[in-house]
Design a protein around this nucleic acid. Structure first.
Length: 300
DNA sequence: GTCCAGGAAGAAA
DNA sequence: TTTCTTCATGGA
């Protein structure tokens, strides 16, 4: 059975802009983007649903397919989509700042309505940050696909198989040698299994991170775990905890974008980069998002 | 063949 | 405290 709901969005919001970001040409295995419809599985209290998300005049249309549907699960699914796709942030203050900077102003126009697309699941967000360390993105997506299709649960709907990111308990017990054949480095294996064990044990949780009042505390709590450095901590805080002040300093994509726009000549100009973000206080992660988006030239 | 990717940890200086 | 080395693979 299929149920359909409407999720309101902020005024400037553009689902099309989301779709373009979600479908930048990488081999993503956790969702599909086809004809203006995003589909992915979601697991709520051991119940698996296929979500379909598309645009409608009043906001987003979210459909849920499953054998049975609990009201509580419906609310959780809508909350997940609202968090993932950042549907409630009013972007106009961000554009006001962006347009004051001539060399950045074109980004506001080109990607109008693009929010910060997140990764609501903490374990998934951390794993993705570790997988993506120091390797090119296409290889990172290859690694993620091997991990997900081997250790994740899946469901076939309409001839298409969809996947959930693996559970911490499953990855914690993964065989090192098998992960090696998937081309994970020994350090990535060690980091991923350590994070999996911490998440399974509950010593690392989104709920606890959210309870820490200061940004620096959340950063330090993440960085206590092997495999999470400054870049990963900030990446996770930006994509999962939605800390707007989280900037993944040192990020290769960030450097590329700023070089391409002519703001810096190489990645050594770190002072200039931090100076730029000072002017975007409260909207730092949005600037990062737009800079990343500016790297994929395909569509606007 | 070389360089560097959406870095991090451990060793060495 | 700062800098160097290693990790692993693949695309340019």
């Amino acid at each position: 059975m299929t149920a359909s709901f409407t999720l309101p969005t902020s005024s400037d919001y553009s689902f099309a802009a989301c779709c373009h970001f979600l479908d930048r040409g990488y081999d993503e295995c956790l969702y599909t983007v086809q004809e203006g419809c995003v589909k992915r599985l979601i697991c709520i209290e051991e119940q698996i649903y296929l979500l379909g998300i598309s645009a409608q005049p009043a906001g987003l249309q979210v459909t849920m397919q499953s054998e049975l549907l609990h009201d509580r699960h419906q609310q959780a699914a809508l909350a997940y989509v609202a968090d993932w796709l950042d549907t409630s942030t009013d972007l106009s203050p961000f554009y006001a700042i962006l347009e004051q900077t001539p060399w950045l102003a074109p980004l506001a126009k080109a990607y109008k309505g693009l929010p910060v697309v997140g990764i609501p699941d903490l374990f998934e967000a951390i794993c993705w940050s570790i997988i993506g360390q120091q390797i090119n993105l296409s290889f990172a997506y290859q690694l993620k696909r091997r991990l997900v299709t081997h250790y994740g649960r899946s469901k076939e709907v309409g001839g298409q198989r969809y996947w959930l990111f693996p559970e911490p308990a499953v990855l914690a017990g993964a065989e090192d040698e098998l992960l090696r054949t998937m081309k994970f480095s020994r350090s990535k294996i060690k980091y991923l299994k350590g994070i999996a064990a911490a998440c399974r044990a509950g010593t690392l949780s989104k709920q606890h991170l959210l309870s820490l009042p200061a940004f620096a505390e959340r950063q330090n709590h993440l960085m206590r775990h092997k495999g999470i450095g400054v870049w990963s901590a900030n990446y996770v805080l930006m994509k999962c905890l939605r800390d707007v002040e989280a900037v993944p300093y040192g990020d290769a994509g960030l450097h590329q974008a700023l070089i391409k726009l002519g703001y810096i000549k190489d990645k050594t100009e770190q002072e200039k980069i931090s100076a730029l973000f000072v002017g975007f206080a409260g909207w730092e992660s949005y600037l990062v998002m737009y800079l990343w988006r500016s790297l994929s030239a395909a569509k606007s």
